[in-house]
Amino acid sequence: MKSLKTILEEHPFFKELEPKYIELLVGCASNVRFEAGDILYHEGDQADSFFLIRQGKVALEMAPPNKEPMIIDTVEEDLVFGWSWMVPPYKWHFDAQALTLVRAIAIDGKCLRQKCENDHELGYELFKRFFSVVTERLQHTRMQLLDVYGAQT
C-alpha cells in the first residue's frame, strides 16, 4: 500500500513541489472514503479541507430555490476539488455528493492555512496550483453558460 507521502508526490497537482512542502502536506492529509450517495459537504458548511480524488466520481450540486438540485459539475480520478478553504469566510458554495464509491485524500485546509501564513513560499506554490484549477473551471463554466448546444446558437 502506498504511503500518503508517495501518493502526494505522485499526484499531478503537486508535481515539482519541493519535498519539504510534501512533508508539510502529509501532516495535514488523511485518507477518506465515501460510499455512493454519501454527502461530502453541504453548501454553507465550514470549508476546512480540499480533496484529491483517487477513485470514483463526485457530483457538485446547486439547489436553486423551489427547484430540484442540479448537478453543475462532476470531478473524478486525479482531480482536485474544493478551494473554499482558501477564501474567507471559508464556506462551501455547493453540495458535493459521491456518485460512486470515492476514495480520496482530504487535506485539512485549516492546518494548511496556518502553514501558508508561516511560509509564504508554500502559500504561493499552492496559490499557483489552485489558480490554474480555478481558471480552468471558470472557462468551463463560461462555456456551459453560453449554452452552445441550445437551439438559438
Binding site: K57, I71, D73, T74, E76
Partner: peptide, 16 residues
C-alpha cells in the same frame, strides 16, 4: 452541461 440529481454520468464540457 447540467443534469438533475440521479444522472450518474459526467457533467461538464466535452473538452474535459
Amino acid at each position: 452541461d447540467s443534469a438533475k440529481r440521479g444522472w450518474m454520468g459526467n457533467v461538464g464540457v466535452v473538452t474535459q
